[in-house]
Design a binder for these strands. Sequence first.
RNA 1: GUCCCCUUCGUCUAGCGGUUAGGACACCGGGUUUUCAUCUCGGCAACAGGGGUUCGAUCCCCCUAGGGGACGCCA
Length: 455
Amino acid sequence: MRTRFAPSPTGHLHIGGARTAIFAWLHAKAQKGKFLIRFEDTDKERSKQEFVNSILSSLSWLGIEADEEPLFQSSRQTKHKEIALDLLNKGLAYSCNVSPERLEEVRKIQQQNKQQPRYDGFSRDLNLPHEEGNVIRFKMPLEGETSFEDKILKKISINNKELDDFIIIRSDGSPTYNFCAAVDDIEMEITTVIRGDDHITNTLKQINIFNALEADIPEYAHLPMVLSPEGKRLSKREGALDINEYKKMGYLKEAMINYLIKLGWTYKEQEIFSEEELIKYFDIQNVNSSAAKFSQKLLDFYNNYYLKESDLNSLYAYIENNFSLSDKFIQNPKKIEIIDLLRVSSNNIIQIIEELTFFHDDPELTEELLTLIKIDKDLLEKFKFELEEVNFNDKLLIGVFLDNFLSKNNLKFPVLGKPLRLILTGKPKAPSITDLLFLLGKKNCLERIEKFLKI
RNA sequence: GUCCCCUUCGUCUAGCGGUUAGGACACCGGGUUUUCAUCUCGGCAACAGGGGUUCGAUCCCCCUAGGGGACGCCA
C-alpha cells in the first residue's frame, strides 16, 4: 500500500494540511505501507522554494518523514506533455482554440440561465490540428456516471453531464494540476489517495484520466474540512496559522498530533494516544464524515497534558534549546523545579516563560498592584523577622514554619497568603506559597518583602 | 445559480432498530490544600424540522431547512 501527501508550495502548512498529512502518514504506518510526499508545483507563479522549506520543516517537526525522496511535479513536465500528446493522438483529448474571453461570455450566459458554468465543448468534435497557442482538453464521457466508494464518505457519484472537458495542457504548453496529479499517482504507484473533501470534484475528473490511461484507480479517502471556530473555511483571515508558529508558541508535537488526529477520528473512548497506539489502532474508516471546527481550548488541553507528562529533563532541554531564556534563569540552580511547577498550569511554553520572569526579576510595585495588597505591615514585619531564621534548604521546614506562624498569630491562610503572593510575584495567580518561598530562595523573599515595607 | 458532501450537548465525538443517548474539552458547584491555581468528586447540556418504513426510530428512505465544498489556461 502506498499513499502520498501532495501539498502545493504556495503557502505554509496550516492546521488543515497538517491534519491531512498526519492521517495519510498514519494510514501508511498502520498498514505497513509507504508514505510519500509530492510537491504540486505546476503553478510557476505561485510556487515558492520558501514554502517548500516551510512545509518540510513543519512536517519534520511533527515527525513525519517520507519513505522516499519527495517528488517535484514540475520535474516531470516533459513526461506529462508526452502523455497528453499521446491522449490527443488517440482521440481521447483534443485541441481547442476558444479564447478566455469567449469562455467567460459562455459562463455568464450559463449563470443567467441558472446552469452550471462550464466549458460547452465547442471544439470537441472540430478535430483542430494542435497548434501553438491552443490548449488541450480532456474528452469527458458524455453519458453515464462517474462514481467511487470513498473510505470515509462511502458512495460518491456524479452524472458525467456535470463534468466538463477540462484543460490538461495550457496554451503556453504547460500541463495542469488535475492531469499531472493523476499521471503522477500512476507513476508513483499510489494505491490510496487521502486528501481534503474539497478535492471530490477533482477526484471525479481524475478517475476519468485514470480510465483513459487504462490505469488502476486508487482507493480514496476524503477528509472532511477543518473549519474555523466560526464555521468558516480555514484561511489566513480566519486565523489559520503556519504550523511552525505553533512550535514557536511552545506547543509540543505530541499534543499537536493527538489533537489533530482526534479531530474526526476516534478509538473507543480513549482521548490520549502515544504514537505506538496510534499506529496500532488507526483505521481511516473510523474517521467521522462531517466537518469539524478548530478549538484552541482543546488543543490547549492536550498541550497542557503533554507538558505535564513529558520527561522533565527532556522538556527542560527542549525549552533551553528552542526558546530564549534569560541568563539569570539559566544560572538558577532551581530552574528545573521551577519549570516543573509552572508547567502544571500552563498551556504552552511561551506561557511558562512569561510566568517565570518573577523568579529573577522583582515584580514592579505599581499603583494598581499596591491597591490589591491588603496587609497589616506590622504583621508582615514580624513575618519577615521570623522568616530570616528559617532553614530554606528544606521545603518541608518552610511549610512547618508557615503553619506555626499562622496558628501562633491566629490567622487564616489567605490573610497572609494573598498579599504575600502579590508581593513576591506581582500576580494574583501563582503556585503555592510554600513552593514559591522555597524556589524563590530566602534572599529574594526577604528583599521583596523589605522593598514593599519601605513604601 | 448548478452540482457534490455534511447535520447528536457550546465544542470534539460514541452510537451502527429497543440505551436512564456514553465520553472528552469548556462551563458551573462541592471536597482537599488553613491558599488563586493544582488535584478530586459531582452537575449542567444534544439526536435541525417534517413526512414515511417498522411493533418500535438518533440509527433506514424521502422532502425541507441550515452549513461546507466545487464550478479557473489555481492547486
